[in-house]
Amino acid sequence: MSMIGEYARVTPAELDRARRDPEWALDLVSARMNAEPADGTDPAAARCLDIDKAWDAVGFLLRRTSFPVDIVHGEEELANADDWGYGPPRCLAPDRVRAAAEALASISGADLTAGVDPADLARSEVYPTIVWERGGGESLDYVREHYDALRPFFRAAADDGDGMLVWLG
């Protein structure tokens, strides 16, 4: 089973309710995920986004830039939340989503992966290590593709004043 990085935009009122009632939040997110087209929605218009197995590489590469927000794991626990796959969800408050969107705007996918090759990810045991061990430029293209989807997703969330639920599913 693969660990997939998952995101859901939520309004401030929905975030407040999710903090009080994580079970309600799971129902909300599940309904939204089922409502969005399977062939993908423009990230700027989506309410939910997954970055597949690129999440750990994105996190590794962002940490190298001293990125100000933990967009891969979230920054705040949802108290009493059940496991949504590989642990409970975490969240980002609207001000942290805005800070992330501003920082993401200044780092292109090409900038993010500059000076890195798959061997660097393999040596650092970035998930999924088997992909990096095989090498090849396609693995960095894969990371850039998913990272480049995060940028408009966070920008749209910030523009709308949304918070974010984040989890590994």
Results as ranks from 00 to 15, higher is better:
38 A>Y: 00
17 R>A: 10
32 R>T: 07
31 A>N: 04
14 E>L: 07
28 L>T: 05
22 P>T: 10
16 D>F: 00
12 P>F: 06
9 R>T: 08
18 A>D: 05
13 A>T: 11
29 V>S: 03
24 W>F: 07
26 L>R: 13
19 R>A: 15
18 A>T: 09
31 A>V: 09
23 E>L: 12
29 V>P: 02
15 L>W: 01
14 E>N: 03
21 D>P: 06
25 A>F: 03
29 V>A: 07
13 A>M: 06
11 T>Q: 06
11 T>C: 07
32 R>L: 14
20 R>H: 10
38 A>P: 00
20 R>L: 15
8 A>M: 06
20 R>M: 15
23 E>H: 02
27 D>N: 08
36 E>V: 12
32 R>K: 13
15 L>H: 04
34 N>Y: 04
10 V>D: 03
8 A>L: 07
34 N>D: 15
32 R>E: 12
37 P>D: 15
34 N>G: 14
9 R>M: 09
35 A>T: 07
32 R>A: 14
38 A>K: 07
36 E>H: 07
9 R>Q: 13
36 E>D: 09
7 Y>G: 06
23 E>W: 00
10 V>H: 02
8 A>R: 02
7 Y>P: 03
36 E>G: 11
12 P>R: 11
13 A>G: 13
19 R>G: 14
33 M>W: 05
22 P>Y: 04
9 R>C: 07
27 D>P: 00
27 D>I: 09
12 P>Q: 09
33 M>H: 00
37 P>V: 10
16 D>P: 00
31 A>L: 11
29 V>L: 05
30 S>P: 00
37 P>R: 11
